[in-house]
Write a protein that binds this DNA or RNA. Structure first.
Length: 204
DNA sequence: TGAATGATCACG
DNA sequence: GTGATCATTCAT
C-alpha cells in the first residue's frame, strides 16, 4: 500500500497543487465505511495575493488553519447551510488552500448511496459534483477543520495515481466576485463529476 | 433568477 | 447592534 501524499507536497503553491491533485485518489473514512474517489475538480486560493481568498487580509478565528502546517484541512461553513473542504498549501504561516469541487467515487459507492438514502439507480454524480455536495455525502463538517491528512492514521488521505492519463482544463473560479479573471480552477475534461459542466470560458 | 439560511466582519 | 456579504444548492 502506498503512503499518503507527504507534507512536502502541500508546501508547494496552491496553483501547483490544485492542478496536480486532479486524478489523484481521495480516501475518506465515513461513519458507514471507507470511500475512495478520484479528484476531478479543484480551485486554488492564494491567501495574501488573492482578494477572493478567505485569508486575503487578516488571520481570524475562522481562517486560522490556513496559517498552520501544509496538509491540514480547512473546512468552512457558508450560506447558512453548506460546508466546503480545502487542503492548506504553502509553508507554515503563509496562507493558501485548494478547494475540492468534484470527485468521482470508485470504491464504497454503496456506502455513499446509503448515506444519501438513495437507490442504486440514482445518478451518482449528483452526489459529488459540487464542493458542498461532496462534503455533505462524505459527512465532512466543521469537526474536520484542522485535520492533518498526511498521517497514515488520518480519516482523510490523498494517494498518488501513477497511471493517471487525462486532459486537465482550467477556467475562472466559480461563485466568486473578486479576481474573476484568473483561471485558477482545474478539472478533468469531459468528466461528469465536474460541477458547472457547461461553462463557456475555459482552456485546455 | 431568486430563496433558503446563519456565521462573520466592517462600521462607528 | 446593524447590514452586507458569502469559495452553494435547488426549485422556479
Amino acid at each position: 500500500m502506498n503512503n499518503p501524499l507527504p507534507r512536502s507536497y502541500f508546501e508547494q503553491s496552491p496553483l501547483t497543487v490544485a492542478k496536480d491533485l486532479i486524478g489523484k485518489y481521495l480516501t475518506v473514512k465515513t461513519p458507514l465505511g471507507v470511500v475512495k474517489s478520484v479528484i476531478v475538480e479543484t480551485e486554488a486560493y492564494l491567501g495574501h495575493l488573492d482578494p477572493a481568498s478567505h485569508a486575503y487580509k487578516r488571520q481570524t478565528k475562522s481562517n486560522e488553519v490556513m496559517f498552520l502546517s501544509p496538509g491540514v484541512l480547512y473546512v468552512y461553513f457558508t450560506y447558512g447551510m453548506h460546508y466546503c473542504m480545502n487542503v492548506k498549501c504553502w509553508p507554515y504561516g503563509t496562507p493558501g488552500a485548494v478547494l475540492f469541487r468534484g470527485i468521482e467515487p470508485i470504491k464504497g459507492v454503496s456506502t455513499l448511496l446509503k448515506i444519501a438514502n438513495k437507490s442504486q439507480k440514482f445518478e451518482l454524480s449528483n452526489l459529488t459534483n459540487g464542493p458542498a455536495k461532496l462534503t455533505k455525502v462524505l459527512k465532512i463538517d466543521k469537526s474536520y477543520n484542522g485535520l492533518d491528512i498526511c498521517l497514515r492514521s488520518s480519516t482523510v488521505k490523498i494517494f498518488p495515481n501513477d497511471d493517471f492519463k487525462g486532459k486537465i482544463c482550467k477556467s475562472p473560479r466559480i461563485g466568486i466576485s473578486k479576481n474573476k479573471d484568473k483561471q485558477w480552477r482545474f478539472y478533468l475534461d469531459g468528466n461528469k463529476f465536474v460541477s458547472h459542466f457547461k461553462q463557456s470560458n475555459f482552456s485546455c
